[in-house]
Design a protein around this nucleic acid. Sequence first.
RNA 1: CGGGGCGUAGCGCAGCCUGGUAGCGCACUUGCUUCGGGAGCAAGGUGUCGGAGGUUCAAAUCCUCUCGCCCCGACCA
Length: 568
Amino acid sequence: MRLSRLHAPTLKEVPKDAEVVSHQLLVRAGYIRKLAAGIYDFLPLAKRVVRKIETIIREEMDAAGAQEVFLPAVVPAEVWQESGRWFQYGPELLRFKDRKGGDFCLGPTHEEVIVDLVKRDVRSWRSLPLNLYQIQTKFRDEVRPRFGLMRGREFVMKDAYSFDVDDAATNRSYDAMYAAYERIFARCGLQFRAVEADTGSIGGSRSHEFQVLASSGEDAIVSCAQCSYAANVEQAELHLHHEPPPAVAEKAYERVHTPNRRTIAEVTDYLRRPARQFIKTLIVDADDRLFAVLVRGDHELNLIKVKKLLGAQRVDLAHEEQVRTATGAAVGFAGPVGLRGVVGILADNAVRGMTHAVAGANADDHHFVDVTEGRDFQVTRFGDLRLAVEGDPCPRCGGELKSFRGIEVGHVFFLGTKYSDAMKCTYLDESGVERPMVMGCYGIGVTRTMAAAIEQNHDADGIVWPLAIAPYRVIVLPLQMNVPDVVQAAEKLYADLQAAGVEVLLDDRDERAGVKFKDADLLGIPLRVAIGGRGLKDGVVELKPRRSSEVQQVPLADIARRVAEWTE
RNA sequence: CGGGGCGUAGCGCAGCCUGGUAGCGCACUUGCUUCGGGAGCAAGGUGUCGGAGGUUCAAAUCCUCUCGCCCCGACCA
């Protein structure tokens, strides 16, 4: 492709509405344009990257035994009513009516549609397992679309659904998808981790997220330095490796005045005690019953774990009024000592045996100091209730956990029979008994993967594409368009590379060398060949990988072969 | 959903407070010079000042409503 013809309008200035680097670079390098909040045009270069990611996905999904289908984006309400989600899903589901007044939605995910399809025609155990996937545009009317392609409203997703006779068979389908995902992201040239994730409200038993490692990632994950364990911080279990000794208190607790100091930071500053000596007391609403939950001051509460411990349907932090009802004080002054307004007091394991701790006094502008667990208050139930942090012990091997930031680009999920039960998707087993199919679902955010690749691979000059998903692999720069030898050599190389099947861009624009270098870097093309009058006199051209800073001088006669080798 | 901010040329912005008939940089067109890391000079085109209504002799500017976009927050203790 000639750059003079390519529709890739590059910008010198950073667009003002772009916050994250992938968004900035995609706009600046002429890959995307915004049409509306969270809705983007994909220009030719972006389309090529998306297609490359899709091709890798297709090859690996097909190799894993899945079959590609294409389901409608516009979905009639009936199937969503059948599963019950028409009423459960919030405003993220974009609903609308057709001309006859019938209800429809734009599919944010396709469990209903796929189950509807499978249950019609699959009746026998002989037809299972079955794994169907599609690559398609999804729409989720996000509360707050942001970060460009990272959290758009319209995006391209690969979604797959497996149907099996039982849990064991589903686990095999799951394992096959897990392995396929590892190959897909490895082939895309990305650094990633598969992490254990929360199974959430769907109630499945297994779930892994595929996280592309990037410091700008929205998700916090921990991974063991010694073994292969990795998990989302929300999911990471924290086992108690040794029982702390019972608390031995020296001092009695006393009440101190802490005017208007509500947060841990404010109080630790004011009292000059470290955060780890603080007992944070959170009031939570679990199915309309109020509980106090205690975690150490330097730890963070994990509501998901609280929900599991209580076996509750719903757990939220309490509202301001509820906090006042429970503690008799404003938010920020709750503490376990003398707390009456709650059904029970739960505490994270790290709170066990704490002495000389600081806690809220359940009175405005007051805290207690030198509080001791067991003596000054009784915990109803201890458990693992906090987010994991760097340095926590690995639940598998006891090694040290390291923390990372990640971008979730894929998710594999053991679904079970939630949808097949609700929508009566059943088969007849060998003995003629009707059973629900057991399902798994497997998603990859295709357009998000493109953005994540940039978040992980960029520098001050622009994008640095991994070879496998670059829109073109080579860019040829004739540095002086007014020197016939330079233009000729560039044209010949361009033609030779095309003939050899190498995806190549030729910057044939009548621009100065500086402009061409800047644009080549911005676009992120993995290999650059610069042809200039100076080098040509000595019969050489320059070869420079985008990722490295060293320039190789290559004889003109060898350049086509060298490039072809490099890009293989 | 709550709070804040911004809509002026393709892009980035100034002008608004203190009303007087719209400007800067980049980009774009033409010419000359330049030619290995976003060139210089000259000439040129570009706007319903987001939309509607109001106040006024006069509105980008003041007022009201509305639409769009961005950021922060959604109880982080």
